[in-house]
């Protein structure tokens, strides 16, 4: 059992938790993820690591409540326990492998969308700790949905953009990137993490601008250790497993359309379970919505 030390709602439906998981905290690096189970009957949920404290033996996770399991997770409070926390899984970010001197010569931009903002934070923080500057673009639907802003400000040059213009710049992250580029920011490395559709369009733009781009893929997974093959995707015509070969890949080589399609696999079943969970005893499946 893994104790939850802190649990907060960051914004509508996005929750942050600090969990005791000494082995994960000791070993994890930016770019890696973990898998949790809420309780003994729970599904294995892959989640990004937002921060870690090696001394305290804790990791911080950020999760959006979208399915039956993440809704259950969002109800947990400080003092509750998770049945399982396993990790870190996947390869660390390539940035952690490069020499600091080389990194200092690069102009790096991170593009973060929605809950994908969380896994960008440890990367920006790691760079800051190693004396490397970077730009971060956070995209959100509106002002209320921008998360982790204060923490980002301490570790990078932050640019916030909202779809409705209610805060920061106005428009999608791709517009913000194009504007920054036109303002003279000639980036030579881009990392995009967020919804697949966002990563797809960022990659389209960065290909035009000639910026090498890394994306972090979050497909459906079961074990997360290379056993089941559920997380397979096509990169440069080759089958890769996000859990052992990734989660980061060269964004210009990922087949996004196929990856997005595969995400739909359990939509019906998950939705059905969610409806059942919400409606409890009153659920009879007769309305046709869950069929």
């Amino acid at each position: 059992m893994f104790k939850i030390l802190e649990a907060n709602e960051l914004t509508t439906n996005i929750y942050q938790m600090i969990v005791e998981a000494p082995r994960v905290a000791e070993a994890c690096l930016p770019g890696q993820f973990l898998i949790i189970r809420v309780d003994e009957e729970g599904e294995r949920i892959p989640l990004t690591i937002c921060d870690y404290d090696r001394e305290k033996g804790t990791v911080e996770i950020v999760v959006q409540a979208i399915g039956a399991e993440t809704h259950l997770l969002s109800k947990l409070k400080a003092g509750d326990h998770l049945a399982d926390v396993v990790g870190p899984l996947g390869k660390p970010s390539d940035l952690c492998e490069e020499s600091i001197e080389d990194l200092k010569k690069k102009k790096i931009v991170f593009i973060a969308g929605g809950v994908g903002t969380a896994p960008v934070y440890p990367q920006a923080k790691w760079l800051k700790e190693h004396g490397v500057d970077c730009d971060v673009i956070i995209g959100a639907k509106n002002k209320d949905l921008v998360i982790l802003e204060d923490r980002f400000k301490k570790v990078c040059n932050l640019h916030v953009t909202t779809d409705d213009g209610s805060y920061g710049r106005s428009g999608m992250v791709t517009k913000a990137l194009q504007d920054l580029w036109d303002e003279g920011n000639k980036y030579d490395h881009c990392v995009a993490i967020g919804p697949m559709i966002m990563m797809k369009f960022v990659c389209k733009l960065t290909q035009e601008l000639g910026i090498p781009t890394v994306v972090s893929m979050n497909p459906i997974m079961v074990d997360g250790t290379g056993m089941c093959g559920a997380c397979r995707l096509t990169v440069d015509g080759q089958v890769k497993f996000a859990c052992v070969d990734g989660p980061e890949f060269d964004g210009h080589k990922v087949d996004f359309d196929q990856a997005m399609n595969r995400m739909k696999l359990y939509k019906t079943e998950e939705g059905r379970l969610l409806l059942k969970a919400q409606e409890g005893d009153t659920h009879h499946g007769g309305c046709g919505n869950c069929d």
């Binding site: 079961v222 074990d223 056993m227 089941c228 093959g229 559920a230 096509t234 089958v239 399609n261 739909k264």
Partner: peptide, 13 residues
């Protein structure tokens, strides 16, 4: 890579 194609490992797990 179509949906509905599984490895035996995934299906059994």
């Amino acid at each position: 890579q179509a949906m509905g194609v599984f490895s035996a490992n995934e299906f059994l797990t």
